[in-house]
């Protein structure tokens, strides 16, 4: 009997969870349940990240997405739900259109996924079980503009600190601040609109 490849087993479990829960998000019409399925879907995706050797990204996914973004979403659901357990149903025609569209898209994507030879499974069955290098330190250095993983860069221009992610990192930090200020400004309560607007 061939030995079981644990990496694949866990991959299958996580992948099945992620796909089924994503489907559940689409199929349910209760928005709180959607959020609930989405949480587990994203947690399963974080599990897939861990399996692919991206510890830091996986932890980040859990922290920012599951612990932050989705809590915010559920908070929004609570604030906007007039009756408990709102559900809004879409018409049958929309479902048919969406199914056709989705099916076509999925076919194309699947075809693309299996068409490149290099993307198939590695020949060495132990490859995925190899001791995975730490990713947190190289990522942190990369954000500071130093690519410790590419010290042997053939192009000398790329070795002078410009190949890192310092500038994108700064841009994204400033972007985040701007966005949060804007969101706070947008969401603040205005007495005028709450008096006049409700119809």
């Amino acid at each position: 009997m061939e030995s079981i490849h644990w990496h694949s087993v866990f991959f299958l479990i996580m992948a099945a969870l992620a796909c089924l829960l994503a489907l559940a998000v689409v199929l349910t019409s209760n928005v709180v349940r959607m959020a609930f399925y989405l949480v587990f879907c994203l947690a399963a995706v974080a599990g897939l990240f861990f399996l692919a050797g991206a510890d830091f990204v996986g932890a980040m996914q859990l922290m920012i997405y599951v612990g932050g973004t989705l809590v915010l979403l559920v908070f929004g659901v609570m604030l906007t739900a007039r009756t408990p357990f709102v559900s809004m149903r879409s018409g049958g025609g929309q479902w048919i259109m969406a199914a056709i569209l989705g099916g076509a898209l999925l076919t194309i994507l699947l075809q693309a996924a299996f068409s490149v030879k290099d993307w198939a499974a590695p020949t060495d069955p132990q490859a995925a079980l190899a001791i995975q290098q730490p990713t947190a330190t190289p990522i942190g250095m990369g954000f500071l503009g130093v690519r410790v993983d590419r010290l042997s860069q053939p192009d000398p221009r790329l070795n002078q600190g410009m190949s890192g992610y310092l500038l994108p990192f700064e841009i994204i930090s400033v972007h985040l601040v701007v966005v949060l200020v804007a969101a706070a400004y947008l969401a603040r309560s205005r007495r005028r609109s709450s008096e006049g607007a409700p119809r």
Partner: peptide, 17 residues
């Protein structure tokens, strides 16, 4: 885990759900 502390904070944050 290489990112132990980060993992713990992340998963502990899920409890609120």
């Amino acid at each position: 885990l290489d990112v132990g502390i980060f993992f713990i904070l992340a998963v502990a944050g899920v409890e609120v759900f």
